[in-house]
Amino acid sequence: MIEARNLTKTFKDKKRGVITAVDHVSFTCRPGQIYGLLGANGAGKTTTLRLLATLLQPSSGTATVAGHDVVSAAQQVRTHVGFLAASTALYARLTAREMITYFGELNGMSATAIKARIKQLSAELDMAEFLDRRCDKFSTGMKQKTSIARTLVHDPAVMIFDEPTLGLDVMTARAIVKFVRECRDRGKTVIYSTHVMSEVEKLCDTIGIIHDGKLCAEGTLAELRAKHAEQDLEEIFVRIVGLEDTK
């Protein structure tokens, strides 16, 4: 379970002064659900997810992830989180097996447990063919599979996806979407950020629309459609964030 309460993050910039990247954001994401964070580039999605993954510390407000506070128990939070983003890369000079083993070790797993987990993940993700090859020789699909295995090695209860399909081809993106769905089906708490409307429509149980660091709207797809009397999510999004008014 993820519970964000007035989560706020400000940055100081020499030219622009104080920037509020995340502004009093509150939402709840339950186990067995996918919470979609929908927003344009620079809306504050990545910062929100980095706060939840404890990569950044909130300026004010807080959140609990799997029952642990992101401020006071950051390490425990990370033990229960799998974080996958377009920006989380692989060690090019390690093999897929070495990469997964390394993150298993960092998560405090025993050698036997890691070995068993790799065997299981390799079978599930069809990685046997390239498991002992170096990551720098991988295709995009192989890299994504290895990244997924890396995030899942310690079987986290919470999965955080930050635009995981960014820059991927259709087939690889479909595989990722399928994997996200499987995470939900296994009862994991899933938070998924994207700016691709179709992915949100296909995947998310609850949608939070974020703009200028603020959570502007929240609800299921059906609720949003009913509230705005509009079927097209893109139209709903534009109305909520008021992009057309500013043009």
């Binding site: 993954a53 390490q75 920006s87 090019a92 998560n107």
Partner: peptide
């Protein structure tokens, strides 16, 4: 630069 720093920081290591 290679994006592995963020991957590493996701681990529960201090």
């Amino acid at each position: 630069e290679r994006g592995t720093m963020e991957t590493l920081l996701c681990s529960p290591v201090a």
